[in-house]
Design a protein around this nucleic acid. Sequence first.
DNA 1: CTAATTAAGTTGGACAGTACAACTAAGTGT
DNA 2: ACACTTAGTTGTACTGTCCAACTTAATTAG
Lengths: 238, 238
Amino acid sequence: MPMSKLKESLDFPRPLTTVDGVVFAIRDDALHVLLVQRAAGEGEPFPGSWALPGGFVDTVRDNSLEACAIRKLKEKTGVVSPYLEQLGSWGSATRDPRGWSATHAYFALLPAVPTRDQHAADAEWFAVTAGRVKPKLAFDHGDILQAAIQRLRSKVEYTSLPAYLMPQEFTLPDLQRVYEIVLDRVLEKSAFRARMLAADLIEPLARMRKGPNRPAQLYRLKKAKSPVYFARTFNPPG
Amino acid sequence: MPMSKLKESLDFPRPLTTVDGVVFAIRDDALHVLLVQRAAGEGEPFPGSWALPGGFVDTVRDNSLEACAIRKLKEKTGVVSPYLEQLGSWGSATRDPRGWSATHAYFALLPAVPTRDQHAADAEWFAVTAGRVKPKLAFDHGDILQAAIQRLRSKVEYTSLPAYLMPQEFTLPDLQRVYEIVLDRVLEKSAFRARMLAADLIEPLARMRKGPNRPAQLYRLKKAKSPVYFARTFNPPG
DNA sequence: CTAATTAAGTTGGACAGTACAACTAAGTGT
DNA sequence: ACACTTAGTTGTACTGTCCAACTTAATTAG
């Protein structure tokens, strides 16, 4: 192989390449995001700051960006997210003090898990209130989180994404509540129910959810369902 | 600065970082995409193949990914696109024979330009027919183009994106035709007109488009308009 | 045991926007 | 003058949401 030519075209500084994840879940009736605290060692940027879970692409272990994202999220949460979507990439000369860097951001939805901690020791859930999270995040992770929240909200307007935030069994009022938490506004009960039931997305179970009042029908997601798009658009074909 | 620690964390192989652009325009009543032919030199991957315009991030000249995309598109088209959106990133160990590589893909919309060539010598417009382009593309650029077409189509269903594909002055039937070209299906005339006129997106000019039949009202985009979203969603607030 | 309370789920009328189709309007060509 | 073509409008039907009231099924208080 003609190394002279090859070397000529590849011998220049390469940006750092990282992957970050924005992991959402519903906890205590509020939208939460998983953050990790950065190490405090010398030479570490943003020591002690909270940040999105992520890190450098390992060209040996990671076969692809998505594989890298899955690996990192598994390390932090212990589970494989039922929904993983690429959010975008952020790259500039200044976003990382260690040099020109580009990160590939993914966003994931986890079903509500019991309060039992199911994540690494340095990871913690933070409530998203008023579209923000309390601590100031490292790097440009605040921007990335903002973009993730915006993407989540806009998609929830016309998709069944919240289904991935639900436990295995849930009621329609449960599901509506999750929509309302993410969108931060109340929805019409009858229109919501009609829409969900028409979507062929969920199926009723034989059991009901007992409570101090009228029991609610339990549902579960139908198998192998990708998100449903509710788009009311120009002449829906067919 | 503690170089020992710093070196320890940054001294590992870095992926190649590139930016690619998917540039769409309407030409001859069809959707077209701009492609470039790859050089045939030794050590060049996919010599002679058609590919999306793009290339390596230059950590000296490019301050950010978007700046890099703008630079590359300007080099190929000579113009600054009125609409540039990040499409996503593709990265894996195998997509580039030169090594682990990640590309950041952008997609751009250009107004229909007169047949006068306004691009670099090695760039050419290709019609998108049946959601595809004739030549087999280099790298995974076929996948990227597919994703771009899908994104364009799905956004056109509920946004005013086609406005960025129009010349400065156009008629409502012109605009409807562009929607129909991208979506590859016919739209209802009266509903389309009502929707566009209600969107506060365009304004009529004093002149009409003359033709061999009834003249059509000319319009232009209102100043500084970001794309309009037509989303009919849950209880539109307000 | 009965009534109040609460949340689940249904029903019906008003309304908005689209689908479909027919219509009118304004130019050219013969 | 008339056919032809495309621009643009109008009217009826239909779909799905909005809004509000209603019924249903459980628990709890008296």
